[in-house]
Design a protein around this nucleic acid. Structure first.
Length: 438
RNA sequence: GGAGAGAUGGCCGAGUGGCUUAAGGCGCACGCUUGGAAAGCGUGUGUGCGUUGACGCGUACCGAGGGUUCGAAUCCCUCUCUCUCCGCCA
């Protein structure tokens, strides 16, 4: 549609509070200059006002012409004038179109405004808010998860690489069942909390990536499918969030439908180009991993509470596995560009001596809603953008290493958390077991 | 992959160049009526953009994009999507 601005940040906010917007953006990016955007917007509004006056004139004359003709009056002069007016309208519309595109492109590349309580800066400015549990101490030399899952027959790295190349692994036997048990533990928990279970397409259109805030800036981070003429057809989802945000795209919800809560299970596919594979052995960072993702659409005034709910749910899942972890509030520059605020849950990986992310809970505020045109109607009929939130609940690929590393015993066996032991009917995994698993 | 039929407002559905500021119906909202309800009657009922202190006014939108015209839902071109049937395949 020609005039649909599709603002990513509220253009009106930029117009009226430009210094505040620029200050907020500076928390996550070095160079902020909205002057061209503001100038283009002013020019566009000026053009629109005058071209619409011309259109009003044209409409009026067009209505008059048949009447005048009927009355036998001469309309040749009017016809000539209108021919010129129409030509002017056409060229002005074209100019406005150019301005629209420029405004749209610039707006589409701006990241979200970080919340007030989000610290400025990059990774180094993240704030640890709390830790849960204790680092396990071992009276023996602990093994890393690569050795453990291999000797326990859970994961086969060599054959995974044989099939998918570097960055892939496969689960086998009891390992597959363990992975499945983890996922079903997550799924059952979300069902009990009243979230609707979605199994979305894994191949998504470009628009889906745009709405999520993934495109246009991060097109190269995902696997793309291309047609015979090399044109973009689909991308493979890097997270179910990319699908779920599009569930209500281009819809106007009623206020009593909010909050709407969903979760999905999908594998996630990421290029992870230029990542530090060397320091992250095993399944810490691969091209494919399993994840259950939670998602909410809320009213603006309830999204903060919803974020608290999501992070609490994700923490409860980790606690249910008895794993030591910490929660951080990410600095503006370390969070995804689409997010106003992000909490990370990081689980302790003894062999690395590091905490690694297993869940990221974020409030996008109205950023994704604007990109996807997702709105709701208030009781008084006013229409506003919804807020959207997402949180992993959880990704398994770092949970499994944490389970085996934190639960390992001196004899190389691993004591399973209760929720998994109950599901598998096995309390402890022993090395050297045949990998059949039934 | 082959053939055919479509795309109009929340829904159904008219509409082949100006009397359509999209008929009519359904739904919905409000009002009248009623002891209460139903029926009936009346009024209203989309989204974006621009403008305005506000009421409002203007403008665009009939799948998308372009063209013809003083004027397009309507005529022309291109594309997309949906449905039906056939074939093939999980």
């Amino acid at each position: 549609m020609l005039w649909a601005g599709v603002p990513m940040l509220d253009l009106n906010l930029i117009r009226t509070n430009r210094p505040a917007v620029e200050a907020a953006l500076r928390k996550r990016m070095e160079h902020v200059d909205l002057s061209r955007l503001v100038a283009n917007d002013a020019k566009r509004r000026e053009f629109v006002t005058s071209v619409e006056a011309l259109k009003a004139r044209r409409n009026q004359v067009s209505a008059d012409i048949p009447v005048l003709k009927k009355a036998g009056e001469d309309v040749d002069g009017l016809l000539a004038e209108m021919k010129e007016v129409s030509a002017t309208i056409k060229s002005m519309d074209a100019e406005i179109r150019v301005l629209d595109d420029a405004i749209h492109d610039e707006l589409a590349r701006l990241p979200n405004l970080p919340s007030d309580d989000v610290p400025a800066g990059g990774k180094e400015a993240n704030e640890v808010l709390r830790t849960w549990g204790d680092k396990p101490s071992f009276a023996f030399e602990p093994l890393d998860h690569v050795s453990l899952v291999t000797s326990l027959g859970l994961v086969d790295y060599e054959r995974g690489v044989k099939m998918g190349g570097n960055g892939f692994w496969l689960y086998r036997g009891i390992g597959s069942r363990l992975e499945w048990a983890l996922l079903s533990y997550f799924i059952d928990t979300h069902l009990a909390d009243g979230y609707e279970f979605i199994l979305p397409p894994h191949l998504l259109t470009y628009q889906c990536g745009f709405t999520a805030g993934q495109f246009p800036k991060f097109e190269d981070d995902v696997f793309q499918l291309r047609g015979d003429d090399d044109s973009f057809t689909h991308f493979i989802l890097p997270t179910a969030e990319t699908a779920l945000i599009n569930f209500h795209r281009d819809e106007i919800l009623s206020e009593d439908e909010l909050p709407s809560k969903y979760f999905a299970y999908t594998p996630c596919y990421r290029k992870e180009a230029g990542s530090y594979r060397a320091q992250e052995r095993g399944m810490i960072r691969g091209h494919q991993f399993n994840k259950v993702e939670m998602f909410q659409f809320t009213t603006p005034e309830t999204s903060e509470t919803a974020l608290d709910e999501l992070i609490a749910k994700a923490e409860a899942l980790v606690q249910g596995l008895g794993l030591h972890y910490r929660v951080s509030r990410l600095a503006a520059g370390d969070a995804s560009a689409a997010m106003a605020k992000t909490y990370d849950i990081e689980v302790w990986i003894p062999s690395m001596g590091e905490y690694k992310e297993v869940s990221s809970a974020s409030n996008a505020a109205d950023y994704q809603a604007r990109r996807g045109n997702i709105r709701f109607r208030r009781g008084d009929r006013r229409i506003e953008y919804v807020h959207s939130l997402n949180a992993s609940g959880l990704a398994t690929s770092r949970i499994l290493p944490a389970i085996v590393e934190q639960g390992q015993q001196s004899d190389g066996s691993v004591v399973l958390p209760r929720v998994l032991a109950d599901r598998l009917g096995v309390a402890r995994l022993e090395p050297g077991e045949p990998a059949g698993g039934s």
